[in-house]
Simulated scan of single mutants.
Amino acid sequence: RPGAERHAPEPPGAPAADGPGTPQGPRAPLHGPAAPPAPPSAGTKAAALTRTEIVERAKTWVAAKVPYSVTSYWSDGYRQDCSGFVSMAWKLPANEWTGSLAGLAERITKEELQPGDILLFHNASDPEKGSHVVIFGGWTDAAHTVYTAYEQTPPHTRKRDTPYAYWTDSAKFLPYRYTGVTAGKAASPAAGGPASQGVASHGVAGYPGRAMFRPGAENPYVTRLGRQLVRKGFGTHYTKGPGPRWGEADRRGVEAFQRAQGWRGGAADGYPGPETWRRLFS
């Protein structure tokens, strides 16, 4: 089912406003003489990519100023709308849409965002209103309030500084990470964040990945985290020594540590990302 994209009005002094929402195309194979316009099989994804590759691929459309279109396909076979643009940057084997991209990614936090990740709003109850997706290119300020966005939007692909999470419907744009991304040097430094260290999320020394700290997880990393929280003075929520099973005491301890860094909202959700881990063990 096709969705629609809402494009935001520009701030004062910026280029002309994008105008009303624009439909996006449905899931479809890459366009070409031998590729009929039929939906591909579900669950397909491309080979692994580094963050540098994702951003460099996005930049090719920016440089070419690929015109926005829901019915046209660029020379590389990808549809010239927002979801086709992300499909191209992620080198997916088909043109996805905002309703399917999350199935090829994992939900992350604002704190964990790095170049090559996306900010996605899919309005499932009414896809014709507001659905849109942009590629995160890195923070432009130390407070993490503005970031570089690569997006396909009328009249053509562009790169621009964008307030987090987006110009409109900001609370509805959620950060996701392509499951095929591999550790590698970030393409665009992020001011004050993990990308500024030139590492991917799993490149932070000792950080095992967010999956180790999901509800019900049980592993040695949970114990290691808890002991470090106690050493740092954030172990007051434990009624007994930290153990290998992730629990509410661990989450509350991490949240207290995150708030001590001055973070609020989603950046202080109690789940350790790479920057939390780096600061906790530094």
Rank of each mutant, 00 (worst) to 15 (best):
W61K: 08
P39C: 08
G32D: 09
E128R: 10
R264T: 15
R6E: 13
L225W: 00
L229T: 06
A267P: 03
G273V: 03
H31C: 11
P115N: 07
T71S: 15
D81L: 10
A14V: 05
G273R: 01
Y78C: 00
A171F: 03
G253H: 14
G247E: 13
A191E: 10
P9E: 08
P215W: 03
P220E: 13
A260M: 13
R231V: 14
A124H: 01
Q24K: 02
G233Y: 03
Y78A: 02
M212C: 13
D126K: 08
E111F: 12
P20E: 05
L174Q: 14
A191N: 03
E151K: 09
A200G: 15
Y73V: 03
H144L: 00
W263D: 09
L120D: 10
P115L: 04
V146C: 08
P29K: 12
W246F: 15
W61Q: 08
E96F: 07
H237Q: 11
P20K: 05
V230D: 03
P154S: 07
W246T: 04
Y178I: 04
Q261V: 11
Q24A: 12
Y238N: 03
H156P: 01
D117S: 02
E10D: 14
G270Q: 07
T223V: 10
G25V: 06
S69I: 09
T22K: 11
W61L: 05
L113P: 05
A186M: 07
S69A: 12
K129W: 09
